[in-house]
Design a protein around this nucleic acid. Structure first.
Lengths: 198, 198
DNA sequence: ACCGCCATCCTCCGAAAGGGGGACGCCGGG
DNA sequence: CCCGGCGTCCCCCTTTCGGAGGATGGCGGT
């Protein structure tokens, strides 16, 4: 099954599996909700899923898909390989993570491997997973503060908005800086955006 | 001609024009340089071009393509509709700007319209162009300062790096703030990233 | 010749930011 | 049961920001 909100990509994927004997495209969906409905009916062995979609996004769809049909293998196929995307997808239990610049052979191989119970990772994704043993995720509260920083709020404003003291805001930010490996709010915001945290 | 670095997208596009009588895909390219070479040989009437590509990117390719072959119409087909992308593409002289979530009929119509000398804009792109009469672009020097801010540099460091005085850095930033409609470096960085300026 | 944009420089100053400590209660896992 | 992570709060201190003025020269287009 193919899940992607871009008609172009769906067509391209279907075409890539058109003349492949052992792989059949049994369904298509353009967002997460449609994916859940189609999966119930079509019972695909493998789902190729985009992450960024309107409505229910990829990660949410994967989670619910795996609750309903644990036997279905999900391979993520997306343009991005930001830390947060990868991490959330892995946590949701995917069988693979490929980037959209992958050649058709790699897609074929990935679907077969996933169907056989194996795992597939794009090289850049694999290295991203390796090279962040110390990837400290900010806590929910810290992220809340960071999001307000990204909006240009001063510490005092953040304190008012979150009903905490300005000192606490500073403490949260201090921890955020340490976890993101930066030492200024501007840099913290950049790193957070790059990692898809905000 | 189709220019996109993702094999999936190229296949999807080719498939979409497969059974269309009056449109023929005469060439494909996976980056800007290849696009220039192929255009010279294939002489397409219309080029469907992605913007984000490795090597020579879309805007650069469009500029050079229009120097060499002013008669070729270029339609941008991309996932993003950030201000900077749109503005640079328009400045480079494109005949259209579509997003990748466009249905096939819209693509057909766009290619025909472009071939006939017309212009095509995705709705969201059109509104983006309308709703920014006061969209002040920072000057090159100001962007240079802004990029260093995004890396977490202090004004003093920026001054050293750019061989200017710290007060000048502040002045540049003051102008950047005004142009981006913010009043802190963190917010400035966010806006700049969203607009694709850095 | 003029005007607007850019880049560069300046002073003054209050308000932030950021680094260094330490402290407390809560909760959940080992 | 104790420890670690979390969220909350406090102190002190130095550096940095950012806002408010204004000023100079260069360059390109009209």
């Amino acid at each position: 099954m193919i899940v992607d909100d871009h008609p172009v990509v769906r067509d391209g994927l279907r075409g890539m599996f058109d003349h492949v004997a052992d792989i059949e495209v049994v369904a298509e969906a353009s967002d997460g909700f449609e994916a859940l409905a189609m999966a119930r009916r079509a019972r695909p062995h493998v789902v190729l899923m985009d992450l960024r979609m309107p409505g229910l996004d990829g990660v949410g769809a994967i989670r619910r898909l795996r609750e309903d049909h644990p036997e279905i293998k999900v391979v993520v196929l997306t343009t991005y390989d930001t830390d947060a995307d990868v991490a959330r997808a892995m946590a949701a239990g995917v069988a693979g993570y490929l980037l959209k610049d992958a050649p058709r052979e790699e897609l074929h191989r990935a679907v077969r491997t996933a169907a056989a119970g194996g795992a597939v990772l794009a090289p850049s994704v694999a290295s991203a997973l390796m090279s962040r043993p110390a990837a400290q995720e900010p806590s929910p509260r810290e992220l809340e503060v960071l999001r307000l920083v990204a909006r240009g709020s001063a510490n005092k404003e953040i304190a008012r908005a979150l009903l905490i003291s300005e000192t606490t805001v500073k403490t949260h930010l201090k921890h955020v800086f340490a976890k993101l490996g930066v030492d200024s709010r501007a840099a913290a915001v950049v790193v957070a955006m790059e990692r898809g945290l905000i």
